[in-house]
């Protein structure tokens, strides 16, 4: 097994213990619930989009260190990005976690999110790291006046 420190890097532990943008956003215009049934992770992602850009993003809920840190870093990364940019980042992030070979270039282009590269060695934890992102996608696809959408990484 790979060194656990590859998985539980300091940045990840820091964000898991003190998640950023960890709050309910009452005036969000998009929101969705994510549920990882395997381990019981449940989180809600809140989003405000203005002129095609992420104006504000936050999350709330319960989860393991990987899912919480991933959600926290996601919210930091996405502020000010366009919806298309957010989608692109998710695709590269997903590839980082699931591609059979390491790709240093891809990792570098992801900035802080590259700390999740270690998750690749722990396939059952990929769902934890991607839960917030799948939930974000559902939130973006949701019409502003519709009830919260729900996704599951099962």
């Amino acid at each position: 097994m790979s060194d656990l420190r590859e998985l539980y890097q300091e940045v990840i532990l820091d964000h898991a213990k003190r998640p950023r943008n960890f709050r309910i956003m009452p005036d969000a215009d998009h929101q969705a619930d994510g549920h990882n049934r395997l381990c019981g992770d449940k989180l809600r992602v809140f989003l405000k989009v203005r002129d095609g850009k992420v104006d504000a993003v936050s999350f709330h809920g319960e989860g393991c260190a990987i899912s919480k840190a991933s959600a926290s870093l996601m919210t930091e990364t996405l502020a000010g990005k366009t919806v298309a940019e957010a989608q692109d980042i998710f695709e590269r992030f997903h590839a980082l976690l699931t591609s059979p070979v390491e790709d240093d270039g891809a990792a570098e282009s992801l900035g802080k999110l590259a700390v999740f590269a270690g998750v690749r060695e722990f396939p059952v934890r990929v769902k934890c790291a991607t839960l917030a992102w799948h939930t974000l996608q559902a939130a973006m696809a949701q019409r502003p006046d519709a009830p919260a959408a729900a996704v599951s990484t099962e």
Partner: peptide, 23 residues
């Protein structure tokens, strides 16, 4: 306290200990 069962499960696995985590 402060550690999610899923993280416990992954770390214990690394130590050769098989436990179940979840609901």
């Amino acid at each position: 306290e402060h550690v999610h069962p899923h993280d416990i499960g992954t770390i214990l696995d690394g130590e050769g200990v098989a436990v179940r985590t979840g609901h």
